[in-house]
Design a binder for these strands. Structure first.
Length: 336
DNA sequence: AAGCCGTGGAC
DNA sequence: TGTCCAAGGCT
């Protein structure tokens, strides 16, 4: 839709743009994907639903390039849900490496256990059953239903939201939080044909990832530049400033540093060592017995953080609460 | 519903 | 260097 047409005056229950124009957009975006879409292993027809599910969890807030090598390791090591379920949480968290948000690893492990125990080791095709699994929310449930099982289901991720905001709403960015209107729009935009709807979901997501990006969109490469409402409106600025994620000095930073120590350490780590700072570490030097060079490096980084004891305790407490760490006596380790 | 939860590449 | 942000989910 663009300013040459009066669709913007229509109410929210109407169609987003003329049927003919929508069909043209479908064809243009899907054709673009067939030419410019990336060859990713979880898009191979031979990839199992389990492989798709693992990829979707890993891709939550983590870029493709960082997921690729870990995904391959996981599928080689744990080719079915039961294989992952048989592993210990500690091994799972270590294999997760530095993908970030390690709670995802625990939830995926829990989901694998549930699939192995209650779904005959087969990833469920039903959207409601997918949604009931730990770590699987509305996006991931829809993504697995669509990309693993070829269903016609409305997928709404950050890429699709951004493309919709620009192409149809003429805004630079989608709203801060997902709205019912966005989901309704995504639903209205989907082709009726099942196979086409799958391609559409895949293609729009890829367009948002490669061309219609958050910063510096490559509009000169866009297959629907001429139809874009944001372009027609003169590329207006966002009507709000995205709130950046703080990092330095936060509990998250301390949690990350503690997790790095636990991941690298082959044996439980003294809680005193985890909770002290650089100055305190001097006094504890006599208690450090061959932690291993890598563990020592991670400890150094943890000690170097400008975090008071109270914050270090809070961070470790959070990890214990989340099941990412366990404590036995005066030692802590990854959960066994 | 607004904030929390990791990590590192790009600019 | 600092800031932004990436196929979200959970509380």
């Amino acid at each position: 839709m663009n300013s040459r047409l009066p669709w913007g005056l229509m109410n929210s229950s109407s169609t987003p743009c003329a049927p003919d124009q929508l069909h043209g957009i479908h064809q243009a975006v899907i054709q673009w994907f067939s030419r410019a879409g990336r060859d990713l292993p979880w898009r191979e027809p031979a990839c199992s639903p389990w492989g798709v599910l693992v990829s979707e969890i890993m891709l939550q807030q983590t870029p493709v390039v960082r997921v690729l090598p870990i995904w391959r390791e996981w599928l080689d090591r744990w080719p079915t849900p039961a294989d992952l379920a048989a592993a210990s949480p500690a091994d799972v968290v270590r294999a997760w490496g530095r993908l970030g948000y390690p709670r995802r690893a625990l939830r995926l492990h829990a989901a694998a256990t549930e699939i192995a125990d209650h779904h005959d080791n087969q990833v469920p095709e039903n959207h409601s059953e997918l949604l009931a699994l730990p770590g699987i929310g509305s996006y991931t449930a829809a993504a697995v239903a669509v990309f693993a099982f070829g269903q016609r289901y409305t997928v709404v991720d950050t890429n699709i939201r951004r493309v919709q905001a620009r192409l149809f709403s003429g805004k630079a960015l989608p709203s801060k939080t997902l709205t019912a209107a966005e989901t309704r729009l995504a639903d209205q935009l989907m082709p009726e044909d099942i196979a086409e709807s799958v391609k559409w979901n895949q293609s729009v997501m890829e367009l948002g990832a490669l061309v219609c990006t958050a910063r510096s969109p490559k509009c000169d490469e866009c297959p629907v530049f001429d139809q874009c409402a944001w372009i027609a409106a003169g590329r207006p600025e966002p009507d709000y400033v995205p709130k950046g994620q703080s990092w330095h000095g936060t509990d998250r930073q301390v949690r990350g540093a503690i997790m790095a120590v636990l991941r690298h350490s082959p044996s439980p780590v003294s809680v005193d060592l985890l909770l002290t700072d650089r100055a305190g570490a001097e006094q504890l030097a006599s208690r450090i017995e061959n932690p291993g060079q890598q563990t020592a490096d991670m400890l150094e980084k943890l000690w170097a953080l400008p975090a008071p004891l109270e914050q270090r305790e809070r961070a470790l407490g959070g990890l214990l609460k989340d099941g990412l760490a366990t404590r036995h006596g005066d030692e802590a380790s990854l959960p066994s």
